[in-house]
Design a protein around this nucleic acid. Structure first.
Lengths: 250, 250
DNA sequence: AAAACCCGTCTGGTCCAACCAGTTGACGAG
DNA sequence: CTCGTCAACTGGTTGGACCAGACGGGTTTT
């Protein structure tokens, strides 16, 4: 317990990207940004290896990840072809899309993810109320109680908020919702500066979260959905100074 | 055109899985089925390589894919640890979950995916009506027209149905919806025998799809959402022999 | 001339062997 | 007992070699 020197917690662990991570990132950006069009043939592995100045194995590992994401289709003997990510990529791509922001405007992607969060969250709240495990709902009420104690600190509230919604999604018993929730959380984290201030109003609405938890614990699906809607649709409909924040692209 | 012998189209291309695909599949199943618990340490790469009787690179490529899915966390120097997929995996895992059905009951997963499809589809229809590109809505009306001509053939209707919904989701302008839709479609395909008969009622409702397309083309968001709900919630609410099928948990 | 075939050469797939680079933990010096 | 050191892990990277499937152009056949 002693011996650990106190450090400012503003330090983030230095990201140590491996060689194949770099290759993956560059190829991913090149594909999602359209520099490689669908059905284009990627350069051969050996050629890519020399171009990136890395070993061929590193290129192969990167290609495997791209294949897993649905960005390329590799076939022995034939060339590796680029797929249309709008057709073949799954929600996990949102994370990658967020990281390399030059694909489509970051704020559009954020809006999309918030919309989806609302859509899924509302239904998850309803389902959690209707078929939620008493244990989970109890934990939810408890979490909603403790949520208020973090009142001013938005960062802590953000984490606690995610924990609350994780309980709700988990309690809905819908695995697809759970996985989609994870994808959205990861994507939101990746985009970094998500909530300008619209999220703040939602996060600070302690009473709203408490009402939501109560409705779920009471098994009132419709009421729970209503409270969830009140919480989740606010950021989407509130434009928050429309035509500002458009820099960071030059 | 000549020379190609006529073949019954019931033949499916033989799946040629590479070595790393096998390794990936086995490790994935071992993890999602719980044979490896979260925080467990996976055997070393060299050990896995000898266990699978393959080269270490094949193991590494498989591990990269698992990492991409959010199933493991690898760190140089330290051991590769198993992550809790319910926390770290994204919606793309649904496909893997469907493939190795021993994780959770297949029909539960199908129900979850249908629920999510309804949730997303309804909102996408509303958004497509409200902010859909005229080109897309026109194509949608056209697709809905042609949809009826495939009347009896359920397989063709299934494909055409996916095409229609792809247009709607695309027209909604929400990239997250689009990616989630792709994940769900892939997962549904992977599960194979999706629609017992509940889907049939939905697929055969040609008029319903036409109404939906018309509402979207007219820009009537609420009406579109209503028609979408009518189409999409039927399979979910229809229990198909209610209190049966509850086994597969012992 | 047109169709069928064959084979060189390209692609990715797999393997072996070695070494680099962090992490961990046990062991010995203080 | 504490602390530094170091050996023994772990994954990360490299090079080279060979196998297997696909493609394309040239040759043969019709």
């Amino acid at each position: 317990m002693s011996g650990t020197t106190l450090l400012p917690m503003t330090f983030a662990p230095v990201p140590r990207a491996s060689v194949s991570d770099h290759v993956f990132g560059q190829l991913r950006d090149a594909i999602v940004s359209g520099r490689y069009q669908p059905e284009d043939t990627l350069p051969g592995e050996r050629e890519l290896a020399t171009a990136f100045a890395v070993n061929r194995h590193a290129v192969r590992e990167a290609l495997r990840r791209l294949q897993q994401l649905g960005l390329v289709r590799v076939s022995q003997g034939g060339a590796t072809r680029v797929l249309d990510w709008r057709v073949h990529a799954g929600l996990d791509l949102a994370l990658s899309l967020a990281r390399s922001g030059d694909v489509l405007p970051v704020e559009t992607l954020v809006r999309d993810m918030l919309e989806m969060r609302a859509c899924v969250g509302i239904d998850a709240a309803r389902l959690c109320a209707e078929r939620g495990d008493p244990e989970v709902t109890a934990a939810l009420v408890r979490a909603a109680e403790e949520y208020g104690t973090l009142a001013p600190d938005l960062d802590q509230m953000h984490d606690a908020n995610i924990a609350i919604w994780w309980l709700i999604v988990r309690g809905s018993g819908n695995t697809a919702y759970l996985l989609a929730f994870n994808s959205l959380v990861a994507g939101t984290f990746a985009v970094g500066d998500v909530p300008p201030d619209a999220r703040a109003a939602e996060l600070l609405d302690v009473a709203g979260h408490r009402r939501l938890a109560a409705a779920i614990a009471a098994g009132q699906g419709t009421a729970a959905a209503g409270h969830a809607r009140a919480l989740l649709t606010a950021p989407v409909t509130t434009p928050t100074t429309p035509t500002t924040r458009r820099e960071a692209r030059a």
